[in-house]
């Protein structure tokens, strides 16, 4: 018997989370004191299927973390809606308190995300207590979770965050995220600050927990190797927009968007005989305050043409469950390399 368990409402075919037309702009002071907005997330839509890991990649400033924070409702979106297992988030059907129990997050900085004045078992038990478990039950559960993430409760339960190493603290954060038995865990650069040897331990732990607790992950990272290893599907963001989404292997082997291809070839090769000879992209991403017109990538794209400056490409299927927002994939888009209209719909059933 468990007070916190939430039933699966829509069955396995129903997406766990459906994000539609999400917009989040932050007001800033522009040049000469004019008002401006950072278009951190600009009209993105995607779904997270039950039991999958959705990887999110992109350069800094592309809106990955803003998306994660909106998913958690730590900040509220300007427009767009989140549907969690068929119920609208923050409505009478699914009030925030119920939603947050089912969605939890692990942050990059393992130290600043723990309360330094609480022992780690108190930190882990805090959520369940807020949600109505008795202190004794909550503490017992905290110890159980510590064992699950590989920290012996007898040795570690009474310690404070500063008495742990970075890898151990991140395990505590994972245990705390799991304390409410969530169905979706958002991992925002959760392993980025760890040393390589410790990172591998934590990645293995995340995979084990996913299997044993039937979790769904949104896994955000700038390390493409790690994202490929963890994810079933990958979403690529550029300047607040989704430029490509597809199954991990398809995306790595048949990337359709020039930005995805550039990201992939920016990964250092592990073969000294095949060093990278030319950098795939020059310069830094443009400012999200005043993004380029048309396709936002056209300023850095090797294939950009006049059409790219004018028309904004929308996501278009390029393979099975694989979509890209590039004029070169869209039939009759005006780009010289766009597929001819009559052949275009071949892959879509």
């Amino acid at each position: 018997m468990n007070a916190l368990v939430t039933p699966d409402l829509g069955g396995p075919a129903q997406p766990l989370l459906k994000v539609s037309s999400l917009v989040k702009h932050f007001p800033v002071k522009g040049p000469l004191g004019k008002k401006a907005v950072v278009r951190a997330v600009d009209n993105i839509s995607f779904t997270v299927q039950k039991g999958e890991t959705l990887g999110v990649v992109g350069e800094s400033g592309c809106g990955k973390s803003t998306t994660a924070r909106v998913l958690m409702q730590l900040i509220t979106q300007d427009r767009g809606e989140l549907i969690f297992d068929a119920a609208e988030v923050n409505s009478h059907q699914l009030p925030l308190r119920d939603f947050r129990r089912q969605v939890q997050m692990v942050f990059q900085d393992s130290y600043s995300s723990l309360n330094p004045r609480l022992t780690i078992e108190q930190s882990i038990a805090f959520g369940p207590r807020v949600h109505g478990l008795s202190p004794a039950v909550a503490l017992a559960r905290a110890r159980e979770l510590l064992a699950k993430v590989g920290l012996e409760p007898v040795r570690f339960a009474g310690r404070y965050p500063h008495e742990l190493s970075g890898g151990q603290r991140q395990r505590v954060n994972i245990a705390r995220a799991l304390a409410l038995e969530p169905r979706l865990v958002v991992l925002d650069e959760a392993v980025s600050a760890l040393d390589k040897s410790v990172e591998a331990q934590v990645l293995n732990l995340l995979l084990d927990l996913k299997k044993s607790l039937d979790l769904t992950y949104v896994f955000i990272s700038h390390d493409l190797h790690v994202v490929r290893y963890m994810s079933d599907r990958i979403l690529v963001m550029y300047l607040g927009e989704v430029v490509e989404i597809g199954p991990a292997e398809a995306l790595f082997t048949r990337a359709a968007h020039p930005y995805t291809r550039a990201l992939l070839s920016s990964m250092p090769s592990m073969d000294p005989a095949q060093r990278t000879l030319a950098s795939p992209l020059t310069g830094d991403p443009p400012s999200p305050i005043d993004p380029p017109s048309g396709c936002r990538f056209h300023t850095r794209c090797p294939h950009a043409e006049a059409a790219c400056r004018i028309s904004k490409p929308l996501l278009f299927p390029t393979g099975e469950h694989h979509e890209a927002a590039c004029l070169m994939s869209i039939p009759s888009s005006g780009h010289s390399r766009s597929p001819r209209g009559d052949q275009s719909m071949r892959h879509t059933p």
Partner: peptide, 25 residues
Amino acid sequence: VALLSSRPEGGLSKGSRLETIPGSP
């Protein structure tokens, strides 16, 4: 050896476990 094999490199198949170094520095 452990450092080189704890990297999740491209060829690694999904679901296979990463080699880890137990303990911490």
